Structures are given as structure tokens and as C-alpha cells.
Simulated assay, not measured.
Amino acid sequence: MKRVLLLLAEGFEIYEASVFIDVIGWNLTAGNGQTELFTCGLKKEVKSTFNQILIVDYVIDEIEIDDFEALAIPGGFEEYNFYTDAYNHKFSEIIKSFHEKEKIIASICTGAFPVAKSGILNDKNGTTYNQNPLRQEQLKNMGVNVINEPIVDDDNIITSWNPSTAMNVAFLLLERLTDKENANLIKKKMGF
């Protein structure tokens, strides 16, 4: 079984989290059955953008990196305190640990910022929210070679530029965890 850890900062965007939950879940039920997803945050209850509360499976201190094959990180809104958790040293440590063990890290939109903050995107290609030039400039100032493309994949680190890319990032993660044929099967079964 290949397990995905969905790392949630306060102020995470529900849609961007849900694509990972759905694609990995659809594969568990209707694909090769070899993926599971678990949620994690700094605390047991994590408030999303627009104030929905999610009770996570694990708090960050309970995580054993070797129990997971991939890390998924949705973006979020500054107005809902996303960067408070996203820039926490525990977030950086877990991201670095996944990278050191050569595991897949998939982020959507501003989810690229905690990845960059951890240092693992230094001098690598990446992207983030593209509808406000300030966000891409901020990522560049964090040492990232910003590429203005919907999805950028460098050294097992996937970044993307806005919520419109979310499903494709989730499908790419599934492809990496299983194979292209299986990912295409799930796309078809989900109507994409």
C-alpha cells in the first residue's frame, strides 16, 4: 500500500485538499487499490480558508516519514493565516525529511511556499499562484527558478500555479505512485 500524507496548514484551501483525497480515494476503490491518504496538521482541528474545520488523522509530531511514500500540500489564503502554519519550523522539517528520503512532494498554488521555505526548492524550478505577479516574485526571492507554466516538476517536487491545476497535480501524483495506465483509468472513471 502506498500512503500519501496530506499536510494541512490553517487556512488551507478545501478544493485543493479535496482533489488529493478524491483521486487517491478513487484509486483505492476503483483503481489498483494500492493507495491511501491520511491528513495531518499542527493540531488536531485545522480551520480551512472560509472557516470549515477538519479533524486530521495525525498531528505532525506523530508522523513517521517511512510510513508514507508521498507528501501533498494544498495552498491557502493569507487572510486565513495560511502562512502562520505553512512557515512553521515543523512544516519545514517534515518537508525536508520527505525530500531527503527521495519521496514525492506535490503542492498546489501557494502550497509551493512552505516547500520553498524548507529550502528544498533552492535553485530548482517551481511555480506558484500566477494571477498576482507578487506571488511569483516572492517565490523567486526564496531562491526558486520560477517557471510560468501550469505545473512544474523538478526532482520529485511538483508545484503548480492556481486551483485550476489541482486535479492534474493529483492525477500526476497518482501516476507517480502507480503508473500512467492506472492514472488514466481513474481519470476516465472520474469523467476527466
Rank of each mutant, 00 (worst) to 15 (best):
V146I: 09
I94H: 00
I94L: 10
A116M: 06
N162I: 00
F171Y: 15
T110I: 08
E16Q: 13
G41K: 00
G31R: 02
K188Y: 13
W161S: 13
G31P: 11
I55A: 06
N122D: 12
F77Y: 13
V152I: 12
F113Q: 01
P114I: 06
V115T: 12
A116D: 02
I151Y: 09
Q136M: 15
S107K: 01
D67V: 09
N182A: 06
N184L: 13
G31T: 06
L121P: 04
I157G: 04
G111A: 09
F68Y: 15
F113M: 09
T84D: 14
I55M: 03
T110L: 11
L139V: 04
I186W: 01
I60C: 05
F98I: 09
N125Q: 13
I108E: 01
I60Y: 02
L139A: 02
E10N: 13
F12C: 04
E93Q: 14
E149H: 10
E16R: 04
P74V: 06
G33K: 11
I60D: 00
T159Y: 02
I53D: 07
S92A: 15
E102V: 08
N51P: 00
N122R: 14
K103T: 07
N81Y: 10
I95A: 05
D85G: 01
D22K: 09
F20I: 08
G76H: 08
E100S: 15
K90G: 04
F192A: 14
V115H: 03
T159V: 01
V56A: 03
T110F: 02
L7C: 09
S48W: 01
N130C: 12
L134S: 12
F50Q: 10
I157N: 03
A170K: 00
V144N: 08
I55Q: 09
K117M: 04
V169M: 00
N156R: 15
I65V: 15
N88G: 07
K47D: 03
T127G: 06
K124M: 11
L121W: 03
G75Y: 10
D155G: 08
Y58T: 05
G33L: 00
L28S: 14
N32L: 11
T178R: 02
I24A: 05
E137H: 11
F113L: 12
A17E: 02
F192S: 11
A72P: 04
I147D: 05
G191S: 04
S18V: 12
T39Q: 00
N148T: 10
I53Y: 01
D61Y: 03
L8C: 12
F12W: 04
I158L: 12
K180P: 02
G119I: 08
I14S: 13
I21Q: 14
V115D: 06
S164D: 14
F50E: 13
K96Y: 07
K124P: 07
P133T: 05
K124F: 05
E149S: 08
D123Y: 10
T35F: 08
C40T: 07
N32T: 12
T49W: 07
A112E: 08
